[in-house]
Amino acid sequence: MNMPGKSHPSPSLLRPIRRDRTLAPVRSARLAFTWSVTARCVLVILVFLFFAFPIYWLVTLSFKADTDAWVIPPKWTFAPTLAHYQKLITTWPFFTYYLNSFIVVCGALFVSVLLGVPLAYALARFKWRQTRNISFIILNQLMMPPAAVVVPFYLICRQLGILQTLWAPMLVYVAFTLPFITWIMKGFFESVPHDIEEAALVDGAGNFQVLWHIVLPLVLGALSSTTLLAAITIWNEFFFALVLTGTTTYTAPVAIMGLWTQYTVYWGSIAAGGVLISLPIVIVGLIVQRHLVTGLTFGAVK
């Protein structure tokens, strides 16, 4: 074996001299350094385990046969089975509930985007005497606990005769998604330089054309992320759906509760349902992560 160092003056000749001079300080600095790196690594791994382990446990539970799930000490290796997923879809109309969720999300989003985008643009671009009050109403709606409005919404839907239909949750979700989309998009519209629009307006384009052909393409990425974030919120919503829907119109999160019977709790199927509910939103969440923080902080952190 030819050592590449052989052609150079051997570093080992120099090393003893250097070591003699600087041994103590260098080593202590090195040690401190390596210790902090190790500590960091351990901490990072601990943090990772704390957040990732429950997710891992949920996913494995959904693939564990009951005999593997209900044992002490817990089993770390097991033969995976799809039995819980099969049961969820065949003996429990989970697919229908899944579809319900999907319909409600699409319906609420359609109305919210259709009305919210022009409203956001109007608030961002034109001077209104009441802008501050409108902002307050929008934000107030975003901060409202569901419990504060669930009773009136229930009674209103009862009066309208839409209780236990999908119209009821859709109506309520528009009440929260429309202000959300308006508020976030208002922030994005404000960050579009005004000059571009003015040039187009001078050239004779109408306000509508400016919004549609010039501004909207600029914020399209932000708009799709905002819409997807709103979709996550609606998809996950439970409280209103619990109160407003019935046996055929449950959304997926409420349907999970049905596996919680008085006599048995079908934990495996609950886990399988949990995985199926989470799968689309986790994917969406990872896709929109660039705008996730913006959306979660209502535009405060960009």
Binding site: I55, S278, I281, L286, L296
Partner: peptide, 13 residues
């Protein structure tokens, strides 16, 4: 991913 997943999970789940 380990940070984003908990935030996006349904509170019911």
């Amino acid at each position: 991913a380990a940070l984003i997943i908990p935030v996006t999970l349904a509170p019911v789940v």
